[in-house]
Structures are given as C-alpha cells and as structure tokens.
Amino acid sequence: MSLANVLFHRKSIIACIFGMLFIFSGEVLANKGLEIALKSDENFDGYGDSSSEMTMELISKKGDVVTRKLRFKRLEVPGDGDKSLAVFESPRDVRGVGILSYSHKVEPDDQWLYLPALKRVKRIASKNRSGPFLGSEFSFEDFSFQEVEKYEYEYLREEELDGILCHVIERKPLDPYSGYTKQIVWIDSENFLTRKIHHYDKKSFHLKTQIFSDYKIYNEAYWQPHKVTMINNQNGKSSVLSFREVKYKNGFDDRDFSQNSLKRSR
C-alpha cells in the first residue's frame, strides 16, 4: 500500500480528479452520474471479504433449464481492485475447476485457471472478458467486480422502477476490449443499489437486460442481491444467478487468494 493510499481515501482522490475534469469541461450532468456511481460503489467500502454459494440456471428459449453450481469468495484490496476465487461444483466434468482473478483499477486484470484433471494452473488473457461465462448469458465481464474507474458516466434522468425511485445513468466502458459500447444503469435513490442494467453491444443494439433483486443487508452495512437475472434480447435465452450462504467478514487474507490456494481449491 502506497503512502498516498494511507493518507487519502482512494475514491476521494479519484472523485476530485474526475470532478475537476468535469467542472473544467462544464459537464455538470456527467459529474452527477459519476457521483451516483461512486455512492453506489461506497456500499462495498470496508466489506473486507465475502463468500457465497451460487447457483446458475441457464434457461433456453423453450424454457429448458440447466443448472450449474459454484463457490465464490472475494477479498477487498485497499487501493486496488478486488481478488476473487470461483470454484465449480457442477456439472461434474468441470468440478474443481477454479478461476482466480485479481482485478485492477485501470490495468488489465490478472486471471488464472486451474484444471484439476491435469493439475495445471494456466494464466488466461483477461482481454477475453467479453466471452460467455460457462455457457451462460453472463460474460466474464458481467461477473467481475465493476470498478468505478473503468467507465465514464453521464446522468440521464430520475425514474420510477417497480415503485422504487431510481437515478438512471449511462456509463461507457473505457476498456476497448469490453463487449459493450454502453450500459444504462438504474440505481435506487434511497440506498444506491443497482437495480437494472441495459447492456448495449458493439452495434449499440440493446442486447441484454440484467435485473438485480432480493437485496438483503449483511453485517448491517453490505447490501447483497440474492438473485441476478440476465435476459438476452437477441436469442431469447436467460440466465439466473442465485446466492446462498452469503457471509461477510470471514477473515480471509491474501493467502486465501494465492496460486497455492487456487491449486487446492477443488
């Protein structure tokens, strides 16, 4: 951790810089978009670590359902992106396959895949983030922690969504390898929780709709959605992610997210 990070809170510095930029360019509305994104991100400040069991249902156009299960844990890294470890439990042929990710604010994320049959750890290119995650409608990108710094923002409007007053903001990924050109995000005005995202593809077609629901609060501070639905408007398929056994403050440290921990993750 650098001295700057100790002296100042990372987000306030970035907010200042962004703020100044926008003031000089006169983009007051853009500034409000960023402000809301930062407020939403603050929900996770100091969460430390979390663990959960996830079930992912892949639903075909005809309504056939295929289920996948995985274990997921995450560690907050002050001054940088988060570390996460996902381990598959089913289907059986990928049981024990693990993905270790170190996300970063601006630089590309570091990612390693563990293949238990070969006992092999393989570094994977994080640029391939726009590809589907385990055959689902979620991409690797949707799955990773969405750092505020990875987008530019514009405030659109206030709008009611299912009876909840929301801020609607537009964000554009700065990463040229992102699968999206823009995302419209609904963030509620009470707790600043993400409620819905419209994802637009390279041709600015409204490709996917992501809905976050069943929010519950943990440790009186951290809001966690227990259901995330991704609907693909193009192929009519959808994927539903449900969370169980959610636990914050497990006392994880770097050793729980190391190369060795990936190898014993199965």
Binding site: R123, A125, Y177
Partner: peptide, 9 residues
C-alpha cells in the same frame, strides 16, 4: 515463460 499481450500469450 508466459507473457501476455492482450489476447496473445
């Protein structure tokens, strides 16, 4: 050695 440049390893 493994060196990543974007999608190239």
């Amino acid at each position: 050695l493994l060196y990543l440049i974007g999608s190239l390893a």
